[in-house]
Simulated scan of single mutants.
Amino acid sequence: MSQISRGLENVYIKTTSLTYIDGENGILRYGGYDIDDLVDHTTFEEVVYLMLYGDLPNKIQLQRIRVLLNEGYEIPQQVIDMIYGLPRDSDAVGMMETAFSALSSIYGSPWNKVTNRETAIKVIARASTVVTNVLRAKEGKKPRIPEPSDSFARSFLEASFNRTPSTEEVKAMDASLILYADHEVPASTTAALVTSSTLSDMYSCVVAALAALKGPLHGGAAEEAFKQFLEIGSPENTDQWFQKKIVEGKARLMGFGHRVYKTYDPRAKLFKRFAKQLSERNQEAKKYFEIAQKVEELGIQMFSQKHIFPNTDFYSGVVFYALGFPVYMFTSLFALSRTLGWTAHVIEYVEEQHRLIRPRALYVGPIRREVIPIELRG
């Protein structure tokens, strides 16, 4: 049994130059750049270039990325019709899976080193259109394609809500896209890598990743964390709720703890900052931010000795809620951002390290048994 690593914990399946994590010291870097610096001094489009081409772009390279994203928003009407043909109460990530399966049928093509990165950029742009229309379909609104602009985040927000977002909202959305863009090889990225190892197309890799992300122990954590704040209802209820639910009920505190980080998740610190900024202009969001702060304080008091602290999902829901997204869309917003990480990792794997991923299982059943004729079986 010593040959088995449950959950593949600390098993390395590839090398990467994309993302560096120091879980003991709370460090996250993309391509060597600290996540704080990227959020404060770059845009999502610049991070797209970084993850796909290996360094931050110059002005000409950045403009090229923006052109490709702006050209990639259009998706076939058949795919829009499929999204709108699903029941409005369908799971949002499941609706994304349906759309990307259709896109795979239409656009799925063999891997090609010359075109892989431009394909990834189109996948990211089409993901924006898919998520926009999943939201609009569930809200009973007409379809809309994001319009070209100088900001991926702005185009997405405008198409989602039919309004001009504020500068603060665009920055918060842009930061969210960067913060969720990649995190090495969690379950969804691993699923995408397994699929890419068979040389299936990039869209199919995204479908595999979405299927893994859909689970509440992965992408669904932001929704579950925010539901706690909804359940608490008001800041003055926090102590009582925490005592009854977490201390006495021994329920899991969602948004706390991480397989890799043994200290405060660096992404959580940044999400907390944007949650505070946005909640200053949104009274309902401010209520939930205050609840989150109180829960965080109680959680750290209870769990810090076990090296359990807030993770990225703890405050991200407050940011998404303040931007206007319903709770059921939080995981889809995660997916929109992580499409960059998924495509970057599968390109890196297929181009540099390709080998069919085919693990083994250690057999623990009977060694050999004789087949007894059915009429003689008891």
Results as ranks from 00 to 15, higher is better:
Arg267Trp: 05
Asp89Pro: 02
Lys227Trp: 03
Val39Ser: 05
Lys306Asn: 12
Phe256Leu: 12
Tyr30Asn: 04
Thr198Ile: 12
Ala225Gln: 12
Arg136Trp: 05
Ile83His: 04
Ser105Cys: 05
Asp22Ile: 04
Gln61Arg: 12
Arg360Asp: 02
Met51Gln: 06
Ala92Glu: 11
Thr343Leu: 02
Asn282Val: 12
Leu62Cys: 02
Ser279Thr: 05
Gln293Lys: 11
Ala192Ser: 10
Ala153Thr: 00
Val67Arg: 15
Gly220Pro: 11
Lys122Ile: 08
Ile124Ser: 02
Met173Tyr: 00
Val185Pro: 03
Ala120Gly: 03
Ser176Gly: 09
Pro373Thr: 01
Glu118Ser: 13
Met51Lys: 06
Thr190Ser: 11
Leu69Tyr: 11
Leu50Thr: 01
Asp36Ala: 12
Ser332Phe: 05
Leu278Glu: 01
Met51Pro: 04
Ile291Ala: 02
His258Pro: 13
Arg267Lys: 09
Ile145Thr: 11
Pro373Gly: 06
Asp182Glu: 13
Leu177Tyr: 00
Val346Met: 01
Ser5Tyr: 07
Ala285Tyr: 07
Gly365Arg: 00
Gly140Arg: 09
Met329Arg: 13
Ser105Gly: 15
Arg64Phe: 06
Arg252Ala: 06
Gln353Tyr: 15
Gln78Trp: 10
Arg252Leu: 12
Gly317Trp: 06
Ser279Ile: 06
Ala175Asp: 03
Leu210Gly: 05
Arg358Ala: 09
Gly94Asp: 15
Ser204Phe: 09
Pro235Ile: 15
Gly233Leu: 08
Leu217Phe: 06
Gly249Phe: 10
Pro87Arg: 04
Phe309His: 09
Lys138Glu: 12
Gly317Ser: 05
Thr129Phe: 04
Ser155Trp: 02
Thr238Glu: 08
Ala335Tyr: 05
Lys245Gln: 12
Phe274Pro: 04
Lys262Pro: 00
Glu370Phe: 15
Phe334Val: 01
Lys138Ala: 13
Ala175Ser: 11
Thr119Asn: 14
Ala102Glu: 10
Thr263Ala: 10
Gly378Tyr: 08
Asp313Thr: 08
Arg88Gln: 11
Glu351Ile: 09
Gln353Thr: 11
Thr195Asp: 00
Lys227Leu: 11
Lys122Asp: 09
Glu184Phe: 00
Leu177Phe: 00
Ile65Thr: 10
Thr15Glu: 14
Tyr264Ser: 01
Tyr180Ile: 02
Thr129Met: 03
Gln283Glu: 15
Pro146Lys: 04
Ser160Leu: 00
His345Asp: 01
Leu323Ala: 11
Arg368Phe: 09
Pro326Val: 09
Gln77Trp: 00
Ser5Leu: 10
Ala275Trp: 07
Arg66Trp: 00
His354Ser: 13
Tyr288Gln: 04
Asp81Ile: 00
Asp174Arg: 07
Asp91His: 13
Phe161Arg: 07
Asp22His: 05
Val134Gln: 07
Arg154Leu: 08
Pro57Ala: 05
Ser188Met: 04
Tyr53Cys: 02
Lys294Ile: 13
Arg377Tyr: 10
Glu9Gln: 14
Leu270Thr: 07
Phe161Thr: 08
Val134Arg: 10
Trp241Val: 00
Met96Ser: 14
Val247Trp: 00
Gly317Phe: 07
Glu24Thr: 06
Val260Met: 09
Gly7Gln: 03
Tyr321Gly: 08
Asp265Cys: 13
Lys272Phe: 14
Phe256Gly: 12
Glu284Ser: 15
Asp40Tyr: 06
Lys269Phe: 03
Pro310Val: 14
Gly23Thr: 01
Leu69Gln: 06
Glu24Asp: 08
Ala192Cys: 01
Ile178Phe: 03
Trp111Glu: 11
Leu323Val: 07
Gln63Leu: 10
Phe274Cys: 01
